[in-house]
Structure formats: structure tokens, C-alpha cells
Design a protein around this nucleic acid. Sequence first.
DNA 1: TTTTAACCGAGACGGTACGTCCAGTCTTTTT
DNA 2: AAAAAGACTGGACGTACCGTCTCGGTTAAAA
Lengths: 213, 213, 213, 213
Amino acid sequence: MSDSDPRTSRTGRPRSTEADAAILEATRASLVDLGWSKLTMGDVATRAGVAKTTLYRRWAGKNELVVDAVAVLFDELELPDRGSLAADVQGVVLQFAALLERPETRTALMAVVAESTRDESLRMRIRDSIVERQKRLVLEGRRRAQQRGELPVETDAAVANRTADLIFDVIAGAVVHRLLVSAEPVDTDWARQFTLLLLSGLGPGAMERRPGS
Amino acid sequence: MSDSDPRTSRTGRPRSTEADAAILEATRASLVDLGWSKLTMGDVATRAGVAKTTLYRRWAGKNELVVDAVAVLFDELELPDRGSLAADVQGVVLQFAALLERPETRTALMAVVAESTRDESLRMRIRDSIVERQKRLVLEGRRRAQQRGELPVETDAAVANRTADLIFDVIAGAVVHRLLVSAEPVDTDWARQFTLLLLSGLGPGAMERRPGS
Amino acid sequence: MSDSDPRTSRTGRPRSTEADAAILEATRASLVDLGWSKLTMGDVATRAGVAKTTLYRRWAGKNELVVDAVAVLFDELELPDRGSLAADVQGVVLQFAALLERPETRTALMAVVAESTRDESLRMRIRDSIVERQKRLVLEGRRRAQQRGELPVETDAAVANRTADLIFDVIAGAVVHRLLVSAEPVDTDWARQFTLLLLSGLGPGAMERRPGS
Amino acid sequence: MSDSDPRTSRTGRPRSTEADAAILEATRASLVDLGWSKLTMGDVATRAGVAKTTLYRRWAGKNELVVDAVAVLFDELELPDRGSLAADVQGVVLQFAALLERPETRTALMAVVAESTRDESLRMRIRDSIVERQKRLVLEGRRRAQQRGELPVETDAAVANRTADLIFDVIAGAVVHRLLVSAEPVDTDWARQFTLLLLSGLGPGAMERRPGS
DNA sequence: TTTTAACCGAGACGGTACGTCCAGTCTTTTT
DNA sequence: AAAAAGACTGGACGTACCGTCTCGGTTAAAA
């Protein structure tokens, strides 16, 4: 995760391996206490028991540090097999919502996204560290649904990828928008309703075609 | 829009009405040039030909100012009648995407949303000034679809409202996530594919059931 | 005292005569509470129950206002006849010291003097309002001493004036310096010692020539 | 001179020793150009080629900074041996007057004295940095006069000290008052007249007893 | 009695400086 | 060579007053 690698350096004091973990942990703690805009590099350094210099030696700035600190949290997301596509979708929606309600992700995700609109490398870092990594959930869900016969097997890989991206944006986007922009809760009811919409669509009779889980 | 209302105060020099407009315009210009994080109150004041004090007399801070400056841009969104629900959805998606690609909204929206996670009053301001105001698009689209017979008339107002909120979160969320988080373009193809998903759902055979517009 | 005279203006609402007194009183009160550097025009206006505009209509600024507010206090100084030149000097020294220990004069006098070093008109105002007015004490004291035969009658008016100025500077300067610069108290002992020095001088045997009061 | 002492701190970047000198020099320059009341910390910082933060790290504020900047100028005062007590006194009076006519001392001294009336620590700083340091002139002058036999040797140290303080207040006070309060020049004539008064006193026949130097 | 003109309060205005905070860098000593 | 400590430049922050400028309204002499 850290930027520069202590690659071939053979001499000198080696980098503290504990420091990295302590810094990321301190960053998350600071996010919880202060939120993105009040978080400072100095505060993180103090919490981590580390000099500010050490932070800058490993991360280019606040944005990069926070992305790394938060990215790992998204790896907690899992997709336990609940037996049907609808149940799986509903489950991941609620999991994702729970993650976004934690204070460290709540404020951090939108903030770094905002910064990334003016910083290409940050945008790539977010894409690599967070977005792409979590597409696994969509792929896994589809694989299971296909095994169950709930979805047809897509043969064209390009189409399959495009569809996976679309579904990811729809699910993640809806949850993020509901929680952070509309500022309304994502509860079981909403998750069920959303799942129904996602699977059956809005079209005529669609909502009735597949009676709620 | 401005914060404190000199409403009943009858005495004293009245606030300059021109200043408000000049400040909001300057804020948008500064957003274009500098982006959210580099925008400063001093710069806005200078651009508006106004003292910094005047800004703080009317807005509590950067966040509130930017929400007001940006909110008006969302009112530009329209829903021209394109003859079918699918065409209307696709049209509004592209319009919304175009709005979010303007530099002043691109960076500002996510940033104030990030700040709002720690500021209840800011969250309300965003909801009132932006979110609620644009739900009109969903309501209008549904009304037309019902007139056309594309959608059944929902008799239960509560259900109807809940569904409208859901659809708004799905549409807006998907576009925002695609553009700002995934950092991929929203072009006609994507809009068509998304509309298809929204109307027909993901279920078995759904994507084939209603061949793309 | 006020700056601009409503000179030949015959019509229009006349200036409130009560306001002047209220403002000067408020100025002294503010000096006591806040001291020179913390005193603000706004605070004085509020205390006086008057608009800031009214202050600026009558005085050019803080300096002029404070000089006028403080000058009147110096008029309280008197020279009761104590029977001898030494007693008279000692009396006026103690009186002057008491005046300079009042918080409103303590801070104000030095401050306006400091400002006057860069402001010719202020310097004149101080000289007219304070310095020249109090020379009466020296003149009166000398007149009495001459009547008592303690001092010879000076026939040359120019020399007499020059000497009076000198004595005034020495007495006032010593008290001011002792109190405000050296920051030591002016008590009866010091006054007696100073009087002895002033009357007998430092020269050989001088201090013994006129044994203490 | 600087406020906080990084005394025992052994680690970290040490304070720039050049900065101190540059700041004090810049302070004097700013005093000359702008005077006390127009002098700003920002301007001093700019002139010194230093960040404002650095000023505040070393001095508590404008007052403390100016006292330190001006104090060193008083060390320039000397007491060349002119052969007699009267000549020595007259010499030091003229030297002191010349110092007080320099623009940087003229405005600064009175201003900090004014501020010191509300600030105990500033009062101490002035006393230590300026007043006590210059009493050396009185002590040296008396020593010489005693060697010459112009003054008796005082055996009681307490009395000697008290007298020295008195003389210092009288000389410094008279010059300050003449120059800054009365706003009259201190020229050779005035100095001679003052010296005569100081040495011979005001008493009957005193002024004639010791005809002017 | 009606002008009429200067007054009054309130408070917004463009400015300037404040003293603080943080970003990111640099310079020491210590490990 | 990396680490901890902490001073450094630079710049924005939000506040406080400055002195000025509208306002709506009042007050007394002049017409």
C-alpha cells in the first residue's frame, strides 16, 4: 500500500514495519473523531507515535493516506450464499450500507472522491484500491445465480464485463446516494424494494411479476 | 438562500441585493478555476468585488456558500417529452451526466456531501436545495408514463412516494457512481443499457424481454 | 472641545448637548474597563447609547476623543496654600501622582502622547488641552513663593516663562517617569525627597543646606 | 530576549539565530517608516524575510517585540568624562534627547509604556531591558563626581540607591516630558538650564549661586 | 403650519490586521 | 539511512474594528 518500497536499500536503519499499521489505524481513529476535513497529518502522526516526516516519506498527502486507510475496510464485505439471487443482492446491499454508516467510511469515501475529480492519480488509486476490488462481489453473485439457473450464462466476455460494471454502479450508487445524499436510512424494507426493482425492473407489471422475497 | 434573514429589521442600511448574485457567480467561477479544495473565501470575495466580511455575514462558511451556488444549476435540468418512458429516462440520465461533468458541480457536489456527513444542518440544506427540488423530474416522468399507459396508476400515495424516492436514488446514484467513483464516462450506450436495466430488471430473460430502444 | 463647529448653520436639528457629555463619560468608563488599546469606538458608542456615526461627526478619531475625555480630569488639580514652597510642591506632586494612578489617565496619557509623535494636530491638542492649562499650577506656586519671600521676583518675563516651563517639565516628568516608566510608587517619602532635590539641588552640601521639610 | 527558551531541548531543528537579528532590525525599520500604531506583525515578518509564525513563536506580541527591538538602542548611551559633574549631566541629557528624537524610539517608548500600564509582565520587561540597564549612567556619573570631590561619598548603600533612582527619574523624566509631552526641543540652552536647576535647586539665590557652566 | 436641513439610530459596507492553524519542507540529533 | 523532534515558509482561516455609507425617522429653526 505504501508508496515507495525500501527496495534494494541494504544499509541504514530499516523502516519500521509496525509503523505502517499504526499509521493507518491512527488515520481511521482520527477520521472517526474528527471527520475528513478536520483530520490533520500532525494529528495522525501524534496518534501513531510517529514523526510527521515519516508520514510524508510513505504517502504523498492526506488523500492518499486516507484512501489506503479506508480501502482495507471494503475488503470486509463478503457474499455469503443465501440461496437465491434476490437474497444475495439484498444481503450485499445491507452489508454495504452498514459499512457506509461507519463514521470512518462515511466521511472519507465522498471526500476522496471529491478530491479525485481534480487528481488523476488519486482517481486511479481509488479505482484500484476500492472500486475494482469490490467488483468481485458482483462477479461472484452472478456466478452463483448462473449455477442456480437464475441467470443465463453470458458467452460474450465483453458484454458480461460491461453488465457487471453497470450492476456494480447501480447497486453501489443507489446505496451511496440513499445514505449520503438523500440522507435516508437503508433498512431491510428499502433493501427488499430495491432488490425487487433491480431484478424485475420498473416496466409494466414488472413489480408484480416477481412477488417480493 | 442566504443564512440570516434581516427580515423584520427595518432600520440600518439594507443588504446589497446585487452582492448576493455577484457572490454566487464568483463562487461558481472559483470552483471552475480552482476546484473545491483550493477555493477560498478570500478569493471568492475578491472575485465578487466584496469584502470577506460580507460573505460571512450571509453564509456560515464555505460549505453553505457552495451549496447555494451550485443548487441553482440543478434547476436547469428539464424533462422534454420524448414520447416514451425509456426515452425520457435516457434523456434525463444524459442531462444529469452533462451537469455532473461541468467542473463546478463535479467537485462541489461530492465535497459538500462529504462535509454533510458531519453537519446535520448542511445535510438538510443539501436535501432541501438540491435533492427534494429535483424529485420533480421523477414525478413528472411517472405522470407522463401513466398517461401513456406505460405504468399503472398507483393509488396509495405513500407507496407512490416511496417508489419515487427509490427511483430517484437509483438513477442519480448510478450516474454519480459511474462518473465520479468508477470514473467512467456516461455516454449514450451506457444510458441505453442503464435504462433497459431500470425498466426491465436483471431477472431471467429480462434483458431480452424489452429489446433496447 | 468637539471638533467641527456647527458654526453658521442656522437651520436643521441641533446637535444633542447631552450626547457630548455622555460620550466623554462613556470614554472614561471604557478606558477604565479596557484600557487604551482595547478601547473601541463601537464600545464607546454602545456605552453612550449613541450611534458610531455620532462619534465620528464630532471627533476625528480615537485619539482626539480620548484627549478630550481625559483633559478635564487634569483640571481637578488644585494648589491649596500649605504655607511654604516646599509644602506646595510636595502637595502638587502627590496630587499629580494620585491623578496618574487612576486607570483612565494612567493608560490614556502615555498612549496619546505616543500617537502625538506622528500627528502634529494631536500634539497641539494635547499641548492646548492638557499641558498649557496645567502650567497655571507652577505660576500660582511661584507667585505665592514670591509673596512669602521664598523666591526672588523675576523681572524679565521671558526668563520667567522659560523657568516656569522648565520646572513644569521637571516636576511632571519626574512623576510620570517614576510612576509609569520605572513603575515605582510615588509616596510621601519620595515626594519629600524629590522636593528637597528640586529646591536645593544636587550640588555639594545642597541636600544638607535645607534640612528636610 | 526572545520569549520561550528552547533551552534544554536537544533534538529537533534549532531556531535560526540569524532570524532574531533580522526581525529586530526589521522591527526598527518598520518603526521608522510607519510608527508604532501602523506597525504590523505581518509587515515586520515580510521585511525580515520570515514567516509571521516565526515571530509569534519567539515573541508574545507587538509590545514585547518592540521593547526588545528598541532596548538595544539605549545601550548606545555613554558617559564620556567631560571634567565636571555639570558637564557630564549636560552631556548625557543631550545624548538622551538625541536618542529620543530618533523616530524608532520616539513613538515606541511611550507606546510600550502605555501598554505596560495594563500588563504586568510587559512592565517588568521594560524595567529590566531599559530602565535598570541605564541606571549605570547615573552611578558612573556619581562615582566620577565623588572622585573629583564634587559630591560627598554616601556611606549608606540604601540611601545611595534611592538617590540614584530619584536622579534617574528626574533626568529621564524631564527630557521625556520636554520632548514628547510639551513637544519642545531639548537644545544646549535648555540642557544648561536644566543642569543648573538639578545641581543648585530652585531655592532662594540658588540659580545665581552656581553661574552656568 | 409647513418646509427644510441637519441631526439621530441602526447596521451593512470595503478594508486591514489580527493571532491561529495546517501543509509540506528542512535541519538537527539519535538509533 | 531512517527515525523523532521540532523549527521553518507560506497561506487561509474566521474575527474584530476601522471609518464610511445608506437607510428610515426625528427635531427645531426658518419660511
